[in-house]
Simulated scan of single mutants.
Amino acid sequence: MTNPEYWYNTRTGEVEKGRQSAWTDVMGPYPTQEAARNALKTAAQRNENFDAAEEAWEDEWDDS
């Protein structure tokens, strides 16, 4: 038996067990309900990390 996947529905704010909605309305899959529930927080943190890395990279090239 496979483990269920969880999806965060951005339209409703609900966690879905198995993808039940259109791909345009969901983020995932996530391995747990908790991970799906934190989808927006996780995405925001990843964006911050990417922005910081990009800024550091640009600063490094500007100094060259």
Rank of each mutant, 00 (worst) to 15 (best):
Q45H: 00
P31E: 15
D63L: 13
N47G: 08
Y6Q: 00
Y30T: 04
D59K: 07
R11L: 13
N49P: 01
T12C: 03
T10G: 11
K41T: 09
R46F: 05
D62E: 07
F50Q: 02
V15K: 01
M27D: 10
R19C: 12
R46P: 00
E54M: 13
T2K: 11
N47S: 08
Y6R: 00
W23T: 15
G28W: 05
L40D: 11
S64E: 14
D59A: 12
M1H: 11
G28P: 04
L40S: 09
N3L: 12
Y6S: 00
T24A: 15
A44F: 09
E14L: 06
T2S: 10
W61H: 13
V15M: 06
S21D: 07
A22R: 15
N49L: 12
A36I: 03
R37N: 05
E34K: 09
R19V: 04
M1W: 10
T2V: 12
W7I: 02
P31L: 10
A52H: 10
Q33T: 13
K17H: 12
D62L: 10
M1F: 14
D51V: 14
E16P: 03
N49M: 11
T2C: 05
T12D: 01
Y30D: 06
A39Y: 03
E55V: 00
R37L: 10
D62Q: 13
Q33Y: 13
N38Y: 09
W7L: 01
E55D: 11
A35F: 04
A43L: 14
Y30C: 08
A35T: 01
F50G: 03
V26W: 02
D51Q: 15
D25Y: 10
A22F: 08
P29R: 11
Q45D: 09
